[in-house]
Design a protein around this nucleic acid. Structure first.
Lengths: 111, 111
DNA sequence: TGACAATATGTCATATTCGACATAACATCC
DNA sequence: GGATGTTATGTCGAATATGACATATTGTCA
């Protein structure tokens, strides 16, 4: 977002910031949800690269389509454990998974 | 282990291999327990570097001494989620955590 | 040796996460 | 328009992880 846009919005009473700030998360909590979102994105990337449907992936990891959807959405009801198991089931190496911890996620919204 | 030692053991009917092989884990399952052990080791390293007791760390993350002990032991009853939260509470950065996914763990036994 | 601090291990009631299912929403064809 | 395939969302009982607690074990120092 441009500085000017931000300034304009703020002058109109909007608050501009990250979701974490909005939710009042502590830095650790924020880092944790960022981690989950990174893995979620990695999962979707890997799945679509393989041209698998969520249902197909679900079958492969012994889960269900709805849970895969929640995984990829970064839903708070899904554990990191499940995300990691799913990534491993898609052939991701520990090295690749580790690097996704660092990688910045794509921006998803802009004002 | 020396090649000769291994050969000798095998000639006597012993099987030599990793714990994962012994337990009959699939590659993904094996990778998963390796991941947990890596994080467990990273946690202990960080905690002791800070000269914190397990009880002190437990208080900091809102857990209990016994659970911290289980975390560091790589007990299957502890989730990766809890390990990650604890590492973050100790100030580990996503980058550091990610790199611990790659790092080989210390050898712990030798014949 | 004993006393004390730290860590390990086992159990339990409760909280969280699970797969499953229904169904809504969205896209892509005809 | 409808038909079909895929993904999203909500809910549920069952399975698993949780903190708390008791207690055993280990380490250290006098």
């Amino acid at each position: 977002m441009k500085k000017a846009t931000r300034t304009k919005l703020e002058s109109q009473g909007w608050q501009v910031g990250t979701a974490a700030e909005f939710l009042g998360l502590s830095p650790e909590e924020a880092a944790f949800v960022e981690l989950r979102l990174s893995l979620a994105e990695a999962l979707r990337t890997r799945r679509t690269a393989r041209r698998l449907t969520q249902a197909a992936l679900a079958k492969r990891v012994g889960s269900s389509q709805s849970r895969v959807a929640k995984m990829e959405a970064g839903d708070p009801s899904v554990s990191i454990d499940l995300l990691l198991r799913s990534l491993l089931a898609l052939g991701a190496t520990p090295r690749e998974i580790g690097s996704s911890f660092t990688r910045r996620r794509k921006r998803r919204v802009a004002v």
